[in-house]
Nucleic acid binder design. Sequence first.
DNA 1: GAGTGGTCTAGACCACCTT
DNA 2: AGGTGGTCTAGACCACTCG
Lengths: 243, 243
Amino acid sequence: MSEQRTTQSSAIIGALRQQLNSQTLAAGNKLPAERELADLFDTTRITVKEALHHLEAEGLIYREERRGWFVSRPRLVYNPVSRSHFHALVAAQQRVATTRVLSCETVLAPAELVSDMALAPLSRLTRICRLRSIDRRPVLYTEHYLIPEYFPAIGEQDLSQSLTRLYEHQYGLRYGRSRFDICPTAARGEAARALSLAEGSPVLAVTRINYDQQGRIIDCDREIWRHDAVRIRIDSQEPAFSG
Amino acid sequence: MSEQRTTQSSAIIGALRQQLNSQTLAAGNKLPAERELADLFDTTRITVKEALHHLEAEGLIYREERRGWFVSRPRLVYNPVSRSHFHALVAAQQRVATTRVLSCETVLAPAELVSDMALAPLSRLTRICRLRSIDRRPVLYTEHYLIPEYFPAIGEQDLSQSLTRLYEHQYGLRYGRSRFDICPTAARGEAARALSLAEGSPVLAVTRINYDQQGRIIDCDREIWRHDAVRIRIDSQEPAFSG
DNA sequence: GAGTGGTCTAGACCACCTT
DNA sequence: AGGTGGTCTAGACCACTCG
């Protein structure tokens, strides 16, 4: 029944958790350096890291590469099904959103998308990469893959706005049904760098395949969320077998 | 543009990833012991652990406490909105499901549920804890909190079956709407022990508040999934602002 | 240049699982 | 009893960020 063996690292976790709960360490604050914490708790950096990784996994703190550890802010409540615009959603939760366009180019369709989007082999897609921040902290890296035929000259548009809105106003395309995949995994490559995450940090990947109102696939988007920055909330009105 | 600095740990990650892709290490296999890997790659256990944690975060391998590291099986594709029964869902994906009832007792309502479920302070709830496995591997720990008045003598029922079915057939209660929260976090306490996860391992928490067809809250359930065992898939038929 | 985390060495003892 | 991961020591150098 031992609720928790008191290891050194769990003692550190407990102490920090208390400081976090009592707001002594408030959202956005920087934690003391790992070496400083090691001195404070009279142990080594490895043990301190162990404790920090634990709190990171819980989402209470986060890292920025070589900058230090920080106290997480409340998670954004996000409903991928409702398609609310990112900036509006963030504003509604009293936070400040920014979007930075990283790139927009034509690329060979990645192998997994060829099958997911039912493309001809060696198809080309327009890829738009963006980085979105809340309160100046990067929390979401997105890649949109568009069928080029439907979106001529999209590179000349303002891509920092809602793409959903752009699709509709500029190209007359509205979403019909979509398929979402939500998958906990690890940050790698471009996404890790953009989010200033260490390779292998836990993230939440949301992949969406979008159809228009005629049932044609029009694009696919991959969202990589910092795992501690988001909570997905979905309201279902009627269960599948109620009728 | 350095795609990946070649640290020792990334070399180990690469080597293991290759073995995993080529099925040399096939799903369910046990990896060599950490000490053995350290010898193999001529490094220390800490560096090996670093690499293993990385692959664990990606969901390619998993740990069982003090038993070793194993190759993950394909993720279960799960749609929480559709409410399909766990055993049926798993069988449809050519896997074998088992359910073990851990406990069923009356408890004081946890503080967060008092507000989420709009209960009177110090209310009592019936809590049912279960552990569900796929192909003999525990992957899902669930806690159901029921309003006791609606479910008299539920402790005498067979609780290893679908509770949804039991609600309907035994108590005449059918779900109306529900609210889901999906949140990546870390395993703690009872859930960690039941899933034989180390405290702090990443998990996916799915919390659901269920209303019946008259709009009364009837129960709340918390699901803790091993993060590498599941992929959530939701098909949306009509976006919120299409009509 | 100072400070930070990222990586790494070469060990050690302990708690728990398997046989 | 022997093997495994869990925890820990006491350092070290490197790469990157920031002022």
